[in-house]
Simulated scan of single mutants.
Amino acid sequence: MKTTVLFIIISIFSLTTYSQSQKDSLNKVFQERIKNIKEDQSDNPYYTQEELQNEYKNEINTFKDLAKPSENSDLANHFKIYLEKKLLKKIDFSSIKWSTFYKDVSKNKTDLSVRLTFELSKTGKATNCRINSRDKELEKKIIEVFKKFPLEKLGIKESDKSGKISVQLFAREDNETVIKASQFAVVDVPPVIKGCEDSTLYWQINKCLYDRLYDYILKNISLKTLNSQELRGEIICRPRFTINSEGKITNVNSIAPNKVIKDEIDRVILSFNEIIEPGKRNNVPKNTYCDTFRTITIENLK
């Protein structure tokens, strides 16, 4: 009786060694496959629509309590000086999504605002600035103006290099777009995993978390279970889970090519116990939603 030996490679989809045309081509193929896996698992949402709406409202309330946006904040006055008022008319609040996690939340008056997120470089400068407005010219100008603002006025410290930082800039009130900006920055720090203690920048901590987790999956996933599915080649999986405010993994609900593989990935993730500290928002422990796409290549060894 022939014995089948499996070789499993778990990898991040990376385009760094390709030309731009190859990157575009590969990215298009990968995005199409992601779209297909989402459609195939449309009956497997992470939250119900009601739960998602409640999470959205809770996030907004928490953010505003900390950021304290005001039309007379230092940041607001800075934008009044350096941003042409006519540019405010270009902001389309119906298209702005400050978080892709809430992209399916129905638009309402709960929050009509524009946020800018960024990280701190090794030298303490704002880097990787993002605004999801779909207007590249407007975004470029807003980021240009923001980078002239002294970050210390937002209460940002050296230790905040480990977080993703968010500020509100604009709001829609009484059918008018106004400059209503944060008085304080909101800093979200990801959970810290064993072996990642020396990482200091946000992207380093985040990358280390997923790298350690996938190394764990590679070592603990059941080859017998995968072999029973007779799948070979490259497949895409989308692990989704929450690390709660106590540093425990909960609500594991991955997406995979079928339920058997999904359940196996969920099982391994639930057994992962290398979390040292939970994620934090302005130093207060919080629930952190984790979501990423990875490819798994399964091959026979002959």
Score class of each variant (00 low, 15 high):
Met1His: 06
Thr4Val: 14
Leu6Arg: 02
Phe7Glu: 15
Ile8Glu: 05
Ile9Ser: 14
Phe13Pro: 12
Leu15Pro: 12
Leu15Thr: 11
Ser19Thr: 08
Gln22Tyr: 05
Lys23Leu: 14
Asp24Met: 14
Leu26Met: 04
Gln31Met: 06
Ile34Gln: 15
Asn36Gln: 13
Ile37Cys: 01
Asp40Thr: 04
Asp43Ala: 09
Tyr46Ser: 06
Thr48His: 03
Glu50Leu: 00
Glu51Leu: 02
Leu52Pro: 05
Glu55Ser: 00
Tyr56Ala: 01
Lys57Glu: 02
Lys57Leu: 00
Thr62Phe: 06
Asp65Tyr: 12
Leu66Gln: 00
Ala67Arg: 05
Ser70Lys: 04
Leu75Tyr: 04
Ala76Ile: 07
Ala76Pro: 10
Ala76Trp: 09
Ala76Thr: 08
Asn77Thr: 12
Lys80Ile: 02
Tyr82Thr: 12
Glu84Cys: 13
Lys85Ala: 08
Lys86Trp: 13
Lys90Cys: 12
Ser94Glu: 11
Ser95Gln: 15
Ser99Asn: 13
Ser99Val: 07
Phe101Cys: 00
Phe101Gly: 06
Asp104Val: 02
Val105Leu: 05
Ser106Asn: 15
Lys109Gln: 10
Lys109Arg: 13
Asp111Ile: 02
Leu112Gln: 09
Thr127Gly: 06
Thr127Asn: 08
Cys129Thr: 07
Ile131Asn: 01
Asn132Pro: 03
Lys136Trp: 00
Glu139Pro: 08
Ile143Phe: 01
Val145Ile: 12
Lys148Gln: 10
Phe149Thr: 04
Phe149Met: 03
Glu152Pro: 04
Ile156Ala: 02
Ile156Gly: 07
Lys157His: 08
Asp160Ile: 03
Asp160Met: 04
Asp160Tyr: 04
Gly163Glu: 01
Ser166Val: 13
Ser166Gln: 13
Val167Pro: 05
Gln168Asp: 07
Arg172Met: 15
Glu176Cys: 10
Thr177Tyr: 08
Thr177Leu: 09
Val178Cys: 13
Val178Ile: 15
Ser182Tyr: 04
Ser182Trp: 06
Val186Ala: 00
Ile193Gln: 09
Glu197Tyr: 01
Ser199Trp: 01
Tyr202Phe: 10
Trp203Phe: 14
Gln204Asn: 05
Ile205Arg: 13
Asn206Phe: 07
Leu209Lys: 00
Tyr210Arg: 10
Asp211Leu: 10
Leu213Ala: 01
Tyr214Arg: 14
Tyr214Pro: 10
Asp215Pro: 05
Ile217Val: 07
Lys219Pro: 02
Asn220Asp: 02
Ile221Phe: 08
Thr225Glu: 11
Ile235Lys: 10
Ile235Arg: 09
Cys237Leu: 12
Ile243Val: 01
Asn244Arg: 05
Glu246Ser: 11
Ile249Gln: 01
Ile249Ala: 06
Val252Arg: 03
Val252Asp: 06
Asn253Asp: 11
Ala256His: 09
Asn258Gln: 02
Val260Ile: 08
Lys262Pro: 09
Asp263Glu: 12
Asp263Asn: 13
Ile265Glu: 04
Ile265Met: 02
Asp266Ser: 00
Asp266Lys: 03
Arg267Val: 10
Ile269Asn: 09
Leu270Arg: 13
Glu277Val: 12
Arg281His: 08
Asn282Thr: 09
Asn283Gln: 11
Asn283Tyr: 12
Val284Ala: 11
Val284Trp: 01
Pro285Tyr: 00
Pro285Trp: 03
Pro285Met: 04
Lys286Thr: 15
Thr288Val: 03
Tyr289Arg: 08
Cys290Val: 11
Cys290Asp: 06
Thr295Asn: 13
Ile296Met: 14
Ile296Cys: 07
